[in-house]
């Protein structure tokens, strides 16, 4: 479904990813782990098409399309969805108007308001967020955990096929983590989709029954395993992984 082949990525002249490969098939869940500042969020934003990140070589093929040639909107309409590590707020633009516009544009016809509202309300209930979020400014004045749930509301409405979850578990209390995982599992069982998840904790990877765990270092994936790899990291940290260094100025000076 998504194949990343040997990409290099720069930001501000600094090379963050180099020789990065990843192959995710339909209905698989892949996790990326790695120390802070190693490039996990970078790969998430690169897939979505954040123009701040320059892909200097390699390719990303999604659904047989070269997405590096597509802009952010086209990628989203093709079914890619990014749940950011720290979702921004846009006061003055409500969830409802943003989602209705997004859906209308994608479908080429106005979304009927009644069904739209009904679906939004159902999802709010499932995610245990107040209905008032529907007409609230996007993430406006919301706590870290509330923002993650609000973004999940967007996911359910937009129904993407390739889902990127960048530390969705950070900022969630135990109950919310459970609700969020149940919601993602429900989505997954009712939709054909793949998930790329970034997390520092094995807990959520277990709850989502992650198929593969990758360790990112030196700009690319240095080890791939299953959930036991996440456990190992939890117990031993990243020290035991051979050749693990943070991206350092002298290694990849542009």
């Amino acid at each position: 479904m998504l194949k990343i082949d040997n990409i290099s990525v720069k930001i501000d002249q600094k090379e963050i990813l180099k020789g990065f490969n990843l192959d995710i098939k339909l209905n698989e869940i892949h996790a990326i782990m790695g120390p802070n500042g190693i490039g996990k969020s970078t790969i998430c934003k690169v897939i979505m098409g954040d123009p701040d990140y320059i892909v200097s070589s390699g390719s990303i093929i999604y659904d047989a399309k070269d997405i590096l040639k597509m802009d952010v909107t086209e990628r989203a309409r093709a079914g890619i969805f990014l749940l950011n590590q720290s979702p921004i707020e846009i006061p003055g633009v409500t969830n409802a108007e943003m989602l209705r516009l997004a859906l209308s544009q994608k479908q080429g016809a106005l979304v009927p308001i009644f069904e739209f509202n009904k679906k939004m309300e159902e999802i709010c209930k499932k995610l245990d967020i107040p209905k008032s979020f529907i007409h609230r400014g996007i993430n406006e004045g919301m706590s870290g955990g509330e923002r993650k749930k609000n973004e999940l509301l967007h996911l359910w409405m937009l129904e993407p096929k390739f889902i990127i979850l960048d530390e969705i578990d950070s900022g969630l209390d135990v109950d919310s983590l459970k609700i969020v995982c149940e919601s993602i599992n429900e989505y997954k069982s009712s939709h054909d989709c793949s998930i790329l998840i970034v997390s520092h904790h094995p807990e959520i990877l277990k709850m989502l029954k992650c198929d593969y765990v990758h360790v990112l270092s030196n700009g690319h994936i240095v080890q791939t395993g299953n959930l036991s790899l996440a456990e190992k990291i939890e117990n031993e940290g990243y020290k035991s992984f051979s050749g693990l260094n943070k991206v350092s100025e002298n290694t990849y000076e542009a």
Binding site: M48, G49, D50, P51, D71, V72, T73, R75, A76, R77, F81, L82, N84, P87, I88, I90, P91, G92, V93, E97, M98, L99, L101, A102, L103, Q105, K106, G137, I138, H154, L158
Partner: peptide, 21 residues
């Protein structure tokens, strides 16, 4: 970037941002 990543085209996303602002 945020609004485009929800599938809204650049022109409409810009309009939304202006309206919100």
């Amino acid at each position: 970037f945020y609004l485009m990543s929800k599938g809204i085209d650049k022109k409409e996303a810009t309009n939304l941002i202006i309206k919100g602002f």
